[in-house]
Write a protein that binds this DNA or RNA. Structure first.
Length: 521
RNA sequence: CGGGGCGUAGCUCAGCUUGGUUAGAGCGUCGCGUUUGGGACGCGAAGGCCGGACGUUCGAAUCGUCUCGCCCCGACCA
């Protein structure tokens, strides 16, 4: 089998090199820090990527651009998802889609345009989305008699269709998902985290009973949690949202919330129990087994490419992306070390790449005519979990050097030499270890930045300082949350049951739940 | 939508205060050669409606007004 493993498009806009003066005296071999700038702790490791700890926002934007995930476009607030970024999105799609199928869902596709009157049927829904809906008012050179909304979400159009499709309890449940783009008119945008047009999936289901709808909502919530933790390596808190954080039109909203390095929470997936609100608005009725005409119970749930933004921030370091292996478009990149009159390493890499591909690994050979060190840096920026180096010494000894992206230079565990005959098992083991290690680090960060307090002043201070997930006993009253938000800009992220009795840390009223409070993206 | 910053070569920027010949640098790109285990080096070459519009002026990258876009910090959201 001859697979196309070599890269063919070496174009990249991140090749800037350090000025010569800065390079002089730099070590030529691994195991030492490069560049030598020990008296300048804030110095970027990779040119054009500022240190992550110094300015998360600047670091984030630079990484998204330099890793060639996205590129800004001439369209305000909209990014181009470049091939590497799209490949990352595809990995998310593959994993989630497989889970949706396993739980009985089917994919379908609904129109991008939503007539004004449809969108307006559910009062809370339209009110909630009004500020961010884009409208088409002209088409074919003529003013439209009825403006068309560009979907901010698809409850409306799907509700109308469900009303047509559903007659009997035998038609239920309907379990449909769509992969789509949606538009929300945003004022400030950032790659993945908030763009005017974004990619997501939205699931829409209809059920005969409230219990079944609630079960579906929770099934998806757990599916999202499982994906975030076990595939993306991002630990999350999952649970119900407060009334103030609820989806417009929902009876109850559940979410998974991740914690970013700057102490702000990122809502990474939502699952809504819509009750009969949309069924009533869109007249989705069925005849039940007892011959009574009833409204269905619906749910909706979504994960967007925002999840990718969270993964980037949680795992990335000063050298760029660090992708969890299951999400990485490439699990390993092979870099031959060629010498003058000795390009045996290229053939060895090609053969190894083919073997690995045959074994099911996503690998690529980088045989471009560039310095090896230059290639290391470039693939570091892109976060490929493992690099495989084969040089003349390896050709002689039948070995390869496996270098893991999650470890820093100088770490003795960063690189290991393995026999080529065992490369598959070694790579498998290494990838698993990288995945576990990335998750472990992220989990430790979340744990260390989840702070329980019952002291009112401390609570407000922690919220203001973006200390992380601030865990309190809470009254679950909208007025209380509004007050906390006004004072600290933090809101409740997700709730969980309260054990025993307590007073609300924020206001002193009787507590009903425990809540994680944090500022959020 | 408020507050702040920035748009000059593919990238990072200098030049602008005090308008004046062909607008510069480093890196990248292209060609040739030497190199290649953490961002190589030499020689040669190409590359710019100075974000856009209007204005002031004999003359605008430079001054003024407007506009578009990007970044950062807030308010709203996934």
């Amino acid at each position: 089998m001859r697979v196309n493993l070599a890269i063919t498009a070496p174009k990249c806009d991140c090749k800037a090199r350090y000025p010569r003066a800065m390079r002089q005296g730099s070590p030529r071999f691994v195991g030492e820090t490069w560049p030598v700038m020990s008296d300048e702790p804030a110095q970027a490791v990779v040119k054009e990527i500022p240190p992550k700890a110094a300015d998360l926002s600047a670091w984030y934007t630079a990484v998204c651009l330099k890793a060639e995930l996205v590129s800004y476009s001439p369209v305000r607030g909209c990014v181009v998802l470049r091939p590497y970024g799209f490949a990352l999105w595809e990995k998310l799609q593959q994993h989630l889609d497989a889970r949706f199928k396993q739980t009985g869902h089917e994919n379908a596709y609904f129109p991008l345009f939503i007539p004004a009157n449809l969108l307006q049927r559910e009062a809370e829904h339209v009110e909630g989305f009004a500020p961010e809906v884009a409208w088409v008012t002209r088409g074919g050179g003529e003013e439209l008699t009825e403006p068309l909304a560009i979907r901010p979400t698809s409850e409306a159009i799907i509700g109308v269709m469900y009303a047509k499709w559903i007659q009997s309890y035998r038609d239920l449940p309907i379990l449909i998902n769509q992969w789509a783009n949606v538009v929300r008119w945003e004022k400030a945008t950032r790659p993945f985290l908030r763009t005017m047009e974004f990619l997501w999936q939205e699931g829409h289901t209809a059920h005969a009973s409230a219990e079944e709808a609630r079960k579906e909502t929770l099934t998806i919530l757990d599916l999202y949690r499982d994906f975030a933790e076990n595939v993306a390596g991002v630990p999350v808190y999952a649970g119900p949202k407060s009334a103030g954080e609820r989806f417009p039109g929902a009876v109850e909203t559940f979410a998974i919330e991740a914690l970013m390095p700057d102490g702000k929470a990122l809502q990474s997936g939502t699952s809504h129990d819509l009750g009969q609100n949309f069924a009533k608005a869109y007249d989705i009725k069925f005849v039940d087994s007892d011959s009574a005409i009833k409204f269905v119970h619906t749910t909706s749930w979504g994960v967007s490419w925002r999840m990718l933004g969270g993964l980037i921030m949680v795992h990335g370091d000063d050298r760029g992306l660090r992708l969890p292996p299951k999400m990485a478009p490439l699990e390993a990149v092979l870099i031959p070390i060629v010498r003058t009159n000795d390009d045996r390493a290229v053939a060895a890499c090609q053969a190894t790449a083919e073997r690995l591909a045959a074994a099911g690994f996503r690998v690529r050979l980088d045989a471009r005519d560039e310095q090896p060190g230059w290639k290391y840096s470039e693939w570091d920026v892109r976060g490929v979990p493992v690099r495989i180096e084969i040089g003349p010494r390896d050709v002689e000894s039948g070995t390869a050097v496996l270098v893991r992206r999650d470890r820093q230079k100088g770490d003795p565990e960063q690189r290991r030499s393995v026999a080529l005959r065992d490369v598959e098992s070694n790579l498998r083991e290494l990838l698993d270890d990288v995945a576990a290690s990335l998750y472990r680090d992220a989990k430790r960060f979340l744990d260390e930045h989840t702070i329980a307090t019952s002291d009112r002043a401390e609570f407000f201070e922690l919220c203001r300082n973006r200390a992380g997930m601030v865990d309190i006993a809470w009254c679950n009253r909208p007025e209380c949350e509004a007050h906390v938000k006004a004072a600290t800009t933090a809101t409740s992220r997700v709730l969980r049951p309260l054990e025993g009795s307590a007073v609300c840390t924020a206001c002193g009223e009787p507590a009903q739940v425990r809540a994680y409070f944090a500022q959020s993206y």
